[in-house]
């Protein structure tokens, strides 16, 4: 589904990603872990198409297409979804309006008719139960005045409504209490299926207690330094990231 080859990315001229390789197949859940500043969020944002990040080398193929050539909205229409680490507040645009615009834009690109108001509302209300969000938040401006936990739930609600093929969660677990963490996990687990793939970007192993990954990758200094199955996450929890950094440092002559 997603194939990242030798991806190099700079921000303001400073190299952040220095050759990332990653293969994600439909049905898989990948966890990308790593210390602060290793490039995890950069990877998530560059996949979603943020203009601030400059790709200097490498390629990303998503469902057979050159992802890097597509504007962010086209990526979303092709089934990609990024749950933001810091969801932005948009005063004056209601949550439900955004949900409807997004869903209908995606449906339109799939040659599906717009959902009528009744069906749409039924769908949204159904997904709201999943994230345990009060209905009142639907009619508020997007994320405006939301608590940190509400913002993250709102991201998961959008994901649950839009049903992406590839969902990328950028540190969705950070700053959440256990209840909210379980809500996020439930949202992800419901989405999980043979047609979809999920990339969890996280600093902590905690989330992986609730969502079992098929693969764990450790990103250190802009490269994937180590990959393994879920047991790798436990080792990281026990020993921290230091040992991998040492192990992966190329010998100098």
């Amino acid at each position: 589904m997603l194939s990242i080859k030798n991806l190099h990315v700079s921000v303001d001229g400073k190299p952040i990603l220095k050759g990332v390789n990653l293969e994600v197949k439909a049905g898989e859940v990948h966890a990308i872990m790593g210390p602060n500043g290793s490039g995890k969020s950069t990877l998530a944002n560059v996949l979603a198409g943020h203009e601030h990040y400059e790709v200097t080398a490498g390629e990303v193929i998503y469902q057979g297409r050159d992802l890097l050539q597509l504007p962010p909205e086209e990526r979303a229409r092709q089934g990609m979804f990024l749950a933001f680490q810091y969801p932005v507040e948009i005063p004056g645009v209601s949550n439900i309006y955004l949900l409807k615009s997004a869903l209908n834009a995606i449906r339109e690109s799939q040659n599906l008719p717009e959902l009528d108001a009744m069906d749409f509302l039924a769908l949204v209300k159904d997904r709201m139960k999943l994230v345990e969000m009060p209905e009142e938040l639907l009619y508020r401006s997007v994320n405006e005045g939301f608590s940190g936990g509400e913002k993250k739930r709102n991201e998961i609600l959008q994901m649950a409504v839009l049903e992406p093929k590839l969902a990328i969660l950028d540190e969705t677990d950070s700053g959440l209490d256990i209840d909210a963490l379980q809500v996020v996990a439930r949202g992800v687990n419901v989405l999980r299926g043979p047609e979809r793939a999920i990339i969890l970007v996280t600093h902590y192993q905690r989330l992986l207690n609730y969502i079992e990954p098929d693969w764990v990758h450790v990103l250190v200094d802009g490269r994937i330094a180590k990959s393994g199955d879920k047991t790798l996450a436990y080792e990281l929890e026990k020993h921290g990231y230091g040992w991998i950094a040492q192990e992966s440092t190329p010998a100098t002559v």
């Binding site: 909205e73 229409r77 990024l82």
Partner: peptide
């Protein structure tokens, strides 16, 4: 960017 990432 947020709106565009939501297909708008």
């Amino acid at each position: 960017f947020y709106l565009r990432s939501r297909a708008v």
